[in-house]
Design a protein around this nucleic acid. Structure first.
Lengths: 252, 252
DNA sequence: CGGCGCATTGAGGGCGGTCAATTGGTGTGG
DNA sequence: CCACACCAATTGACCGCCCTCAATGCGCCG
């Protein structure tokens, strides 16, 4: 395994992924290198572009390096649901490694940089490195944990609680990968997009955004979010970040 | 590896699991045998019993052999959300193999039979059999696919659509493991339980049940569900079972 | 028979939906 | 530099789905 494909700055590109994997009993340097070696050079995705089509059968999995992506499902009536937002360091479709067809599309919510891992190579690596396989498995399990958590949010929380929860989660996840600056972060979502995440109409998202502003908890101008009162916001959200699995895991 | 622990009728006990795993490029007979060898003898769980507590750190994963279980989260205000229903052949907490703590409880909705796999043994097996590891990984990925699908149902469908969808899904999943008889199946859920799955109040579940009855689509008496008009029900539900991943996968 | 759990029904109200108009910021062509 | 288009945010009116509270069946079991 040469480091020929490493020429395109693999360190920085995979830094956030490795940061995440290290939390789960860290793969060895050899395993890291093997993974880095199969990743393709980065490429850029334009905002709004559909990276992966629902029902397609991708032959590689995509790692988000920078930007924001969403997993999007369109229903019969034309309404949409975003089932997950992906931040840098996330694999956006690692599950496609084991599933025949995508159950959703993946859309760039902003200009994004990505790199991909061919499934053929992933298979070779997971055959050879059981711990690396479990580390990748772990990533998909954290995804599922987040999905479950949002099931309770969509099933049982009102609009204000849902929005507060989304902002708390994004703050924590973006902070984890170093994308929170001065207590705020860039959120390239329209209020309509947020509605597609929260299961709300764009109009009602606007109403609850204004409630959060009026309560002095959040400012949201352009694409910039500032959390003004974390205590109050996380309390309103009933935010309890265990489900994000950001604490180090113990590999026995 | 002896077959000593196989004495407790491992074949029938694991039959539904193997049926499922075979869909994903089948593990070999040796892998099946190795998995069967680490499963504990079956035990019975009483209806309503909490098998696994939220925030606990189980040292083994549980396979549901018969009955029905739910993954339950309780919110601050006392309201509950069931994030998944598990049917026979499902691992109810395979993700606990890789996560430090449970993000939810697991509750028996009926009298259940279970068998467990110690995590230590699972680690040994997944070290040794990469294909088996991927097959188990695959199971957790199907779980996540179902979670995502329910995010769209809870986020975008009204009460009637949600209930219709739940009944369609249960019919298909139970049919897959041979638990549909004469076009109907046993559903040991109260209408209140169904509300916890659907993000609805028990009162409103009752109202939409009656709508389905009035339209001649479903009968629901005691614990027995009969689908009277599959075409109409699945159409109302916009049910499209791809997300259940019951079609054979292709392992390259 | 009485208690209990669950299903059912009714009344009333609020959250969040749709529809539609307006504002405002940004970019573009003239 | 201005007119205009365009997109996102905002506001208002209206209404319906689904909530809560509460009462009433109804079947089962001790």
């Amino acid at each position: 395994m040469t480091s020929s494909t490493l020429s395109a700055a693999p360190g920085p590109m995979l830094q956030r992924l490795f940061h995440r994997l290290e939390r789960y009993g860290p793969p060895s340097a050899e395993e890291f290198a093997a993974l880095a070696a199969i990743m393709t050079p980065p490429r850029t995705i334009a905002p709004g572009q559909v990276l992966i089509q629902q029902f397609s059968a991708p032959q590689e999995s995509t790692l988000l390096v920078s930007g924001l992506m969403g997993r999007l499902v369109t229903l019969r009536g034309g309404s949409q649901q975003i089932t997950a937002l992906q931040v840098p360091g996330d694999f956006v479709d690692l599950h496609a490694f084991l599933l025949a067809r995508m159950d959703h599309s993946v859309v760039a919510m902003a200009e994004c940089t990505v790199t991909t891992a061919p499934h053929r190579e992933l298979r070779r690596l997971t055959d050879r490195y059981p711990r690396l396989a479990r580390a990748l498995w772990y990533l998909t399990i954290v995804d599922a944990s987040i999905h479950r958590h949002w099931l309770t949010v969509l099933g049982r929380r009102d609009a204000l609680g849902r929005l507060a929860h989304l902002l708390c989660e994004l703050h924590v996840r973006l902070d984890d990968v170093g994308l929170v600056e001065d207590g705020g972060f860039d959120l390239p979502l329209t209020q309509s997009d947020a509605g597609d995440v929260l299961g709300l109409s764009a109009v009602h998202v606007n109403r609850v955004v204004q409630q959060l502003r009026a309560r002095g908890m959040v400012s949201w101008n352009r694409r910039r979010i500032e959390i003004r009162d974390w205590r109050a916001l996380s309390d309103l959200a009933e935010f309890e970040p265990t489900y994000l699995q950001l604490e180090p895991q113990i590999e026995t």
